[in-house]
Design a protein around this nucleic acid. Structure first.
Lengths: 363, 363
DNA sequence: ACGAATTAGTAAATCGTTTCACTAAATCGT
DNA sequence: ACGATTTAGTGAAACGATTTACTAATTCGT
């Protein structure tokens, strides 16, 4: 019995020291002051050298080397918070998205991320779920966190801040906001012409949700293109997505409506790929085959488009590139915020990707 | 030479005034000191009151009201950077993901975001593209930026930091890391039993990429479950995903391999939904129908699973919930970092979702 | 050999907040 | 009426970097 406690004590000790080393001794990051002290130099000198300030040219190479070496050995990393406070620059931007959906936002974000990391910037993302109040709320938090600019993705009417703002597919008319937008006219034309070439005359359209910022532009483009091709779109062949569900469900519902209206159509222009997928489901359920009975064309070219069954003919938006461009223009604005001649719009070109969801109309 | 500086100075001035008016007066956020000055109080008092510090109880209501009102009027917002520096708390965490873009990461992130915003935390996301060096690199940046913890999503072997770490589907054996994991045994069992009940005996399997942290656990679970059902998996019926392409393409390739091997199978267990979709494409191309000729079952239940054609039978992982849980446990660790008894694992339960990609075997 | 320029640094202010340690006046208990 | 407590605050030191304005010693040009 006497041995047992002892053994346990020993084990405990072992455990503890073990745990201690594991739970972290908290190797409290070394500060500039400590680094300087270890070198018997002033923080000033060390800072100057490590930042390669022009003033540091007077510090002899030997000293500089000592400083670099000590920094490496002690694993010194400047505290970004302190630096931000002093320099009034956080190298951080805020990104507003409707939601973390797999297709659209994620792809745009991947472009944003690539560009920003390249330039030493980090970003906060927040979703607003199409709720005005959340947009406002998050924008304020961004200001509080001292982001240097805001990138709004598919987010309309952004509330006024003094921060640089770039909007991707946002159609933000606010003065001073750069918009990264698709050439919608061309996109509409590509879509409609493709269907017309395949012999379609009765074309149905599913418009986007009323809150989606691309809805109006895309709808106008389609109408214009259709008129130009002398195939005006019939009122009865137009449905609209409803609700904030980011799945194909609203497209499914809209297509059901179109089918219920009993107006004949041989082709369907969906607002985007997600809704096209929902629409195809509805068409199949009603006994119509795609593309044999109805041709369906989507928008965006998200990953899912290629591997859906049937694979989707779609108007490709270069989403990742738009993310890159958005980040790029935002950084440009941040860096040259005295100048005023930023473009109000930067346009990217759509591309028709023909796959298996469209086919020539049956005679 | 003497004139040049002068002329440039004049031009600069013009430029500046020009930019100044247009770039919008930069309403430089008001600081605590300014707010205090406007009230003829000290910053201390104002800070105490606004933060509802216990000490502030001695400040009369009248003064408190004046302070609140002035804060509102001047739109005072405390500078988060300064606060972070002083308090040594940034209310920010870093999230590591393999890449932004597939269903997996985005869904997990939506859970993470929800939980974190609820608690007043923001997060940085970075993708590492499965590259060890990037994981290391980003982790260092996280430390530099003073994140309070790191959430690693589907990211194996995380390098040691002194920061709290929670890993989602990471199977990180490092002491002190909490893992949010699926009950893989159960998941494997659900999948295999479902197929067995449908009469399948020749079951093919597509394993995950070697770098994916779930690969091993899932494969073991499937093998164990199959053995228990007396349907051992034949070597020739096992393929593995290759490459980092986050689309269905690797699944397509793997299924092609299985088909080329000419070993008969009536059911296919894919590593995840994405690869199941690719596999179905390959099966269709080889003239096999799903589910009539081959049943296919996926994993994850990403959005696309429900609306794919045929819709995917799958083993659902509660991805969003896992994100929530990950965030929750990370915050718990951050707040109680003295204590040592955090669970090494938090297990969530899978769910069999039966849709149209599986059917009874033909006799 | 003398002033100017260069070399090798340092002290102190600053960014915007929080917080510890105070004070001076008013009020209270007895 | 007197010390103790409460009330209503304030001053100054952090947090960890950057940066401006210095100094003291050396070297240079002539």
């Amino acid at each position: 019995m006497r041995h047992l406690p002892q053994r346990r004590a020993i084990m405990m000790k072992k455990d503890k020291s073990n745990g201690f080393s594991k739970v972290m001794t908290k190797p409290k990051a070394v500060s500039l002051k400590e680094l300087a002290a270890s070198l018997k130099l002033s923080p000033t000198t060390v800072s100057l050298v490590l930042n390669a300030a022009p003033t540091a040219s007077s510090i002899p190479t030997g000293t500089q080397d000592r400083i670099f070496e000590a920094a490496r050995n002690l694993k010194y990393r400047p505290n970004h918070i302190a630096r931000s406070l002093r320099a009034q620059r956080t190298h951080t931007i805020g990104v507003l998205i409707p939601e973390m959906s797999e297709g659209y936002s994620a792809t745009v974000l991947s472009g944003v991320e690539e560009k920003l990391l390249e330039e030493g910037y980090f970003y906060f993302v927040v979703s607003h779920w199409h709720r005005e109040a959340l947009i406002e709320h998050h924008s304020r938090f961004f200001v509080e966190r001292c982001v240097e600019g805001i990138l709004a993705v598919d987010t309309p009417q952004h509330h006024q801040t003094f921060l640089p703002v770039v909007s991707i597919s946002g159609h933000d008319e606010t003065k001073g906001v750069t918009n990264i937008v698709l050439n919608h006219e061309q996109a509409g034309l590509l879509a409609v012409e493709h269907l017309v070439k395949l012999g379609h005359k009765k074309i149905a359209v599913i418009k986007g949700q009323s809150f989606s910022s691309d809805t109006e532009a895309r709808w106008n483009a389609i109408r214009t293109a259709a008129a130009r091709c002398s195939i005006p779109i019939k009122e009865t062949l137009v449905a609209q997505l409803v609700g904030t569900n980011p799945t194909p469900e609203p497209g499914y519902v809209a297509a059901k409506e179109l089918l219920a209206a009993k107006a004949e159509f041989t082709a369907l222009l969906a607002f985007n790929d997600i809704s096209a997928i929902g629409a195809i489901r509805a068409l199949n359920e009603s006994g119509r085959r795609v593309p044999e009975d109805v041709s369906v064309i989507g928008f965006d070219d998200i990953y899912a488009a290629e591997f859906h069954n049937p694979s989707l003919t779609t108007i490709r938006q270069p989403l990742k590139e738009m993310g890159c461009l958005g980040a790029e223009y935002l950084l440009k604005r941040i860096r040259e915020n005295q100048s005023d001649d930023f473009p109000a719009d930067v346009t990217v070109e759509p591309e028709l990707v023909i796959r298996q969801s469209t086919a020539a109309v049956k005679n």
